[in-house]
Nucleic acid binder design. Sequence first.
DNA 1: TCTGGGGTCCTAGGACCC
DNA 2: TCTGGGGTCCTAGGACCC
Length: 445
Amino acid sequence: MGNKPHQSFDPSALAPWQGAAIILLDLDAFFAAVEQLDHPEWRGKPVIVGGSPDKRGVVSTCSYEARKFGVRSAMASARAAKLCPDAIWTPGNFPRYIELSNRVMQIMSDVSPRIQQVSIDEAFLDISPGRFVKDHPVMLAHTIRSKVAELGITCSIGLGTSKSVAKIASDMEKPDGLTVIYPGMEQAFLFPLPIRTMSGVGRQSEKRLNDFGIFTLGELANADEGVLKGIFGKNSTMMRNRCLGLNDSEVLSDDEVKSVSNEMTFSTDLREREEIKQSIEMISAKVGRRLRHKGLAGYTVSLKVRYEDLSFANVQHTLDRPVDDEHEFAPVLVELLDQVWEPGTGLRLIGVAVASFQERPEQLSLFGDDLTAGMGTAGKNAPAKTVGDKKQPRKKPKRALVEATDKVKNRFGEDAVGYGRELRFRERDTGTIAQKKDDYKDPLN
DNA sequence: TCTGGGGTCCTAGGACCC
DNA sequence: TCTGGGGTCCTAGGACCC
């Protein structure tokens, strides 16, 4: 199944492919691989892309050399530093990753128009013969693999008759592998595998399935209907079909963004109301700028906090009109704070999200209404109909100022312009790298 | 000396309307 | 006096993914 060398082969020797053909391409240790490409002196050495060990960071990606020491993605940076003291650390270079990712996506798009990007380093491609392409799927997979290699990075490809099979197959021969599951071989391939390998089975579902004596995908495929319903709810049939190797999910691009959020973990817990308020304002400014850059405005704003004990809480509020300006929604979030925070409690993380986007953001008025009016303590669940006819409508900063600030930040970077209060907190930012789905074509952030 | 950050989707319960 | 359901919107929380 695996096929390391990029050897030439005779396509006419391949058995004909019946039915759907889907590829999952996964770039190997992507961020670290790009760093080694750009820094030749780092090749063959353990490279870790991630947040620094002394600031509660985690490992985003690490090179295969670092993996030999036991370093893994999502591991606390402090632990990674202990396992591999000589590792080369880098915070990452997102614009560069996006550039290379786009090149890979272009290679795939050139083969078939039916591409579904899953993340910055992963995508499905429908290469069903006679549908979008005419060449043999195995040949096309080889072609894609060679073209990616020409960029100086490697990928692992799974080819099968469904997305689930392709996804799992891509994991079999990492790195730089090509795994083909021919039509008709789906169940022989899937059934012996542990349930956790299936997308949609996480830690919790795994535990609950184990309690019913279900450990393999074959056992899951043949499990009692009631058991599956109880664990997967309305997705139970879909999960069973996935395990049976059925192709019940099309390769479709879903690029519609549903929410925009930013969050920040602080090097030391926040305890003072004023610094929490300022942090909410600073994070809101990031969210607002991304919203405006995307041309989005949403009705629902939410505040997420993580306490000292690592537990989470969330509060949200739906406004009577969509917002994209932090000067409007940050005050709303500050009011929500009291529902999840008691003075004296330490907060290690604060997150801000805006969701429920309207079709087309309307031009907001120059002097907006005060959205916090009417929110008061009177009724938490009271609709935010409001608008302050009793209270004094507060004057909002001019829209033009917001837009001018965006322009400077977009051009010269986040640190170029800022309200004084933002600067105090910048140094507390963990600076950890994240893989942001909507950042592929977005040089922002 | 533990445990980012950015997302999506689902569920359950309450409010509210008819 | 007692007691409906159905539908929709909203909120909080949690599982899961990369």
